[in-house]
Design a protein around this nucleic acid. Structure first.
Lengths: 211, 211
DNA sequence: CTTTATATACATACTTGAAGGTATCTTTAC
DNA sequence: GTAAAGATACCTTCAAGTATGTATATAAAG
C-alpha cells in the first residue's frame, strides 16, 4: 500500500500496539505471532516491521505504555502527600480504583506479570520492569520516612521494612486479582485491608478506631 | 538403543526432569526445546517422548514435583499447629528456611511463577497451580479461624482477611526474592516482618513486646 | 533351565508447519 | 523527485510430531 499521512501512520502505530496488547494477552508473548498482531490491527507484517524493529521492540513499546501509567500514579503519590498515613491510604486506594476502571492498565500489567518469560533476549525488558518496581518501592520508603519523622510510625516498623512490606502486599494482591476469579475487589476488600495495615504500623490510630 | 532395566529407565526419567528443570529455568518454558532437554539429560528426544507425551506432559510432571514439596509444607503447618499465632509464625519461618536451603524448590517455583505463560494448551497447568494456591489459602484461613476461636485474633481481622493478607504478603515477597538480587533474606527480614504482622493481628501481644 | 515371544526403552530419520527476517515492489505525501 | 508507509513474496531456521528401527529385559512356554 501507499504512503499515508503522518497522522494516519501514527494511528497505524497505535492500532498495532492495541492489537499487540490483545494478542499478547491471549496467546502469551512467546506464542504470539507478529502476523496475527498485524492482522488484528488491520494491516500486515510489513507495517509491524516498519514501526518496530522486531517483536522485542514491539514488546518494549508496550511496556513503555505501562511505565507511563505507573509514573502517573507515582506522581500522584508524591503530590497528594502531606506526610500522613491517612493520605498514603487515600493515594493507594485511588491507585487501586484506577486498576479496576482502566482496562488497558489491567491488560498491560497482566501481560508483563503473567504473559511473558523474562529470559534471553527479553533481558532489557526485565531491567525496565525492575527499575519501575524499584522506583515504586523507593517512593513508598520516602513516604514512610516522612511519616516517621513526624513521629507517626511505630518503632517496630522502620521505613524500609514498612515499604517492602506494603510493596509486597500490593504486588501479591495484584497478582492474585489479575488471575481473574479473585474473591475480592481492589477498591473494596483490598483497600480496607491496606488501611488496616496502615493502622498497624501507626504509632497512634489514624482512622479513629473502627472506621 | 536397547531396552534398559526398569531401574535404569526410572533414572532416565529423573534425569530428564532434572534437565527440564534447568533448561526451562534458563530458556523459559516456551523457548526451551525438547531436544536441548534431552541432550542435557544425556539422551535424545526419543527418550523424552517415551516418558512424556509432549512438552506439556513434561511440564506437568515437573509441576507435580513442586506440588509434592508444597504438600509437605502444608502438612507441617497442620501438624505443628497448636492454635497459637506463635506456632504459625514458627511454621512459616520453617517454610521460608526451606526455600533458602532447597535449591530444587526455588528453581521449581521460579519456573512456575516466572518462566512460563499460562495460556492456551497450558491451561491444565494453570488449574493445578490455582488449586495448590487455594489449598494454601484455605489452610491459612483454618489456622486463623482456630486462633480466633481462642479469642486471640483482633476483631479488626476476620480470618478470611488475615488469610488473604498473609498469603498475598508471602506471595509478593517470594516473587521479589525469586527475581534474584533481593536486598533481604527469607529466613531473616521476611520472617521478622511476618512476626511483626502476626503481632498486629493479635488481640494481645504474642512475642512479649520487643522480641 | 533354556528358549522364544513380546513389550520396553530408547535412537534415528523424516515430515510438517509456523514464524521471523529481509528484500523488493508500490504508491503517495511532502 | 524522493523518501515515507506499508504490502507482498521469498527464504531460512527451528522445533514438534511421528514413524520406524533396534537391541534387550523379562516373562511365559516348553
Amino acid at each position: 500500500m501507499a504512503r499515508r499521512t503522518k497522522q494516519e501512520a501514527d494511528e497505524t502505530r497505535e492500532a498495532l500496539l492495541d492489537a499487540a496488547e490483545q494478542v499478547f494477552l491471549d496467546r502469551g508473548v512467546a506464542r504470539a505471532s507478529l502476523d496475527e498482531v498485524a492482522r488484528v490491527a488491520g494491516c500486515t507484517r510489513g507495517a509491524v516491521h516498519w514501526h518496530f524493529r522486531d517483536k522485542l521492540g514491539l514488546f518494549l513499546a508496550l511496556d513503555e505504555r505501562l511505565v507511563l501509567l505507573q509514573d502517573e500514579v507515582k506522581d500522584r503519590l508524591c503530590i497528594e502527600e502531606d506526610g500522613s498515613l491517612q493520605s498514603m491510604a487515600c493515594a493507594i486506594t485511588a491507585a487501586m480504583k484506577d486498576f479496576e476502571e482502566n482496562p488497558r492498565r489491567r491488560r498491560l500489567l497482566t501481560i508483563m506479570l503473567q504473559r511473558c518469560e523474562y529470559v534471553a533476549e527479553m533481558a532489557p525488558a526485565l531491567q525496565r520492569r525492575r527499575q519501575a518496581d524499584t522506583e515504586i518501592r523507593e517512593t513508598l520508603r520516602r513516604r514512610f520516612q516522612e511519616v516517621a519523622e513526624r513521629g507517626d510510625l511505630s518503632p517496630a516498623w522502620p521505613p524500609e521494612r514498612a515499604a517492602l512490606f506494603l510493596y509486597a502486599l500490593i504486588s501479591g494482591l495484584l497478582h492474585e486479582w489479575l488471575r481473574g476469579e479473585a474473591d475480592f475487589t481492589l477498591s473494596g476488600e483490598v483497600s480496607d485491608a491496606i488501611r488496616s495495615f496502615l493502622d498497624c504500623v501507626a504509632a497512634r490510630p489514624v482512622s479513629g478506631g473502627e472506621k
